[in-house]
Design a protein around this nucleic acid. Structure first.
Lengths: 226, 226
DNA sequence: GCCCTCTATATTGTCAACAATATCGGACTT
DNA sequence: AAGTCCGATATTGTTGACAATATAGAGGGC
């Protein structure tokens, strides 16, 4: 059962965190219809703050709400998931370009360290897709932040990633190509370290495009059903 | 005083619409601190639905909220406004490409008709920047919808445009270059009509880039202070 | 036997009172 | 006289009760 790890400032924030993690981890599955009272007892909340959190989550597209009829977790179809990757392609391309122009040298060092630890994870824990996915998330997270574009980071971290992660827990995006993905990450960081924004953008777009094609292939093979 | 033009399904929706239009039209200016009770009396609401609406607006980045301290309208700096245009550049570029691939012939005809009426507006009402801005908005709105990419349209129409429009009411984006902008719009539609997605993306990116540079220039000249 | 209608119920939407906290003003100290 | 501490006040956060509506089930009609 998901709980707010760090005591949030307000009950509504707590509710928001609880629900968001519950949705992302799959504790609340896509398409699942959920009642307010059930959520209240489950997360020890009252309906006021809960409803506020529901409103925020609806506005972010993680829930769909029909007046007087209840609320259910959004269920993204296969084609919609692929469309999400088209958006990521252009937005993260921009993020990579701006990160190359604006990241501090220290941030770049940390980014390289992130990749080192990611590589270690792949070596020792060969099959643990979960940690690979987390490493991947960390990498993209740092670049989004490094873009120094507040709205861009907000849209990526606050909207897109949560929707992608919702499925990553089931399908582990880069599964089957961890070494490939790592190599692509390394080349992106190289471009950023050389302050070559244009190249960083190009490589990031190609990286995400490859991830998208990987998912598309698996769907065609029927390996993963969404 | 802004009111919900069409009776919304629920009071919270009504509150959301009221506040959103009030912010976009400038009735609630950037940086303005607003009390809940004041808003309640102003829009004939009670605090419950109002707070739900405030949560949604905060989540969309139109408001900033500090616990126990109140809520104030977000104030976007000049540099942040320019960053917004960087995001628009890549996202609307994608929208134009997908629109070229997916719009129906009928939608394309309607798009051309939109430009015709926009041209008529420019001819007869030379200085009415407001209507020019609305025509501009309509054009970009149709392309976002035409992309058939639900999340992309949601992010553009639900997030970015409201923030841009918030300033458009003051600075009228394409002021000074209505004929130029119209010509650019025409060439984008031509590319879409020829189903040339790549060209449509290129032209759209250049179009928004030009708009950004226009704003940048005005800011440097000190013509508009944000 | 199937479909439609109507009602009972459970769930959501709304409201007004209560509790907790940040801000502002005044008094005191240095 | 300036800065700091403290408390009164107003605002926000929360709670539980009330009202409105959609859903489901039973009953009747075709």
């Amino acid at each position: 059962m998901a709980e707010a790890t760090l005591q949030s400032q307000t009950r509504a924030d707590e509710a928001f965190d609880c629900l968001q993690t519950a949705i992302v981890t799959g504790e609340l599955g896509p398409g699942e219809k959920i009642g307010e009272l059930e959520l209240c007892s489950r997360f020890n909340l009252t309906r006021g703050p809960l409803r506020e959190a529901l409103g925020r989550l609806e506005s972010r597209g993680l829930l769909v709400r029909r007046p007087h009829a209840g609320v259910k977790v959004v269920s993204v179809s296969a084609s919609e998931l692929l469309e999400l990757y088209r958006i990521r392609e252009v937005m993260e391309g921009l993020a990579a370009r701006q990160a190359a122009e604006r990241m501090t040298d220290e941030e770049i060092s940390e980014l390289q360290a992130t990749l080192d630890s990611h590589e270690a994870m792949i070596e020792e824990a060969q099959g643990q897709a979960y940690y690979q996915a987390e490493g991947d998330y960390d990498f993209h997270h740092r670049i989004a932040t490094g873009s120094r574009n507040a709205k861009l980071a907000q849209m990526l971290l606050g909207d897109l990633y949560y929707m992608v992660r919702m499925y990553r827990y089931r399908l582990s995006t880069s599964a089957g190509r961890p070494h490939l993905a790592l190599g692509e990450h390394r080349r992106i960081v190289e471009a950023i370290a050389h302050r070559d924004g244009e190249l960083a953008e190009f490589l990031m777009k190609r990286h995400i495009n490859a991830a998208r094609q990987n998912i598309e292939k698996k769907i065609e093979e029927g390996v993963l059903t969404i």
